[in-house]
Design a protein around this nucleic acid. Structure first.
Lengths: 117, 117
DNA sequence: ATAATATGCAATCATTTGCTTGCAAATATA
DNA sequence: TATATTTGCAAGCAAATGATTGCATATTAT
């Protein structure tokens, strides 16, 4: 476990996405996070390490506990990447929609014409 | 190579993101895609298979060529996941900004008061 | 018909991933 | 101080990943 370490990679794992969801609202300490999952504390600890290494979370030590705080801004890279394509596909959908409506309009006009004959 | 096969996993790989970028505007055939990368055609073929298995691209056979067409709508799952956090972090930024402005305003008022004494 | 082109499939391989278990260190509580 | 709690680190392991090479198949051009 020692190579690519970027945000896309980090959120590829469903457990890590769940962790982000769990700490998005307020910081949670390591054990509290681990308790929510079936896997061992160590496994979660490793996920936290990965998330922290790519900046998606900060760890604040408080006594013997460590609170994990989400740094959601770090998702911006993903947001921007997806957003460009989101714009593309929605604009295509819109274009398709107005095309269909145009077609409908035309066929209705023709029907009317036929009726009027 | 045989397990999790979801969109998050698919876009985790930089080569696959590059492929998506390459075919987002119009369909491109397999060899044309492969030529753009350093790795072997087979490696790209595998990436295409993964992308196709999770619905991110369609393959249209035309004679002996296969054109890969992006299905960007399939990024919607990612878009929605990121969007919820995007809303959260931007609203926090806004709140922070208005808080700072409020503080500034107050300190300026106090300064004025002091001056007026 | 033959050669060239576009592409898939299978075997193989080194790395990376995700996980577990056991042990150590730091802090808090009795 | 002795004990419990919270957490990290390291070793070990099976499975997944990303890549390569060689061979097969279908289509098109000569």
């Amino acid at each position: 476990m020692e190579a690519r370490r970027d945000v896309f990679q980090a959120i590829a794992d469903p457990t890590r996405r769940a962790i982000i969801g769990m700490i998005a609202q307020q910081p949670v300490n390591v054990n509290a996070i681990a308790e929510q999952f079936e896997v061992s504390r160590q496994a979660i600890s490793l996920h936290l390490k990965i998330l922290s290494e790519c900046g998606l979370l900060n760890i604040k030590q408080q006594g013997r506990e460590r609170y994990c705080e989400a740094r959601l801004e770090k998702l911006n890279e993903v947001h921007e990447w997806v957003e460009q394509y989101h714009k593309l596909w929605t604009s295509r959908l819109k274009a398709l929609k107005s095309f269909v409506e145009q077609e409908e309009l035309q066929s209705r006009t023709q029907t009317t014409k036929r009726k009027n004959k």
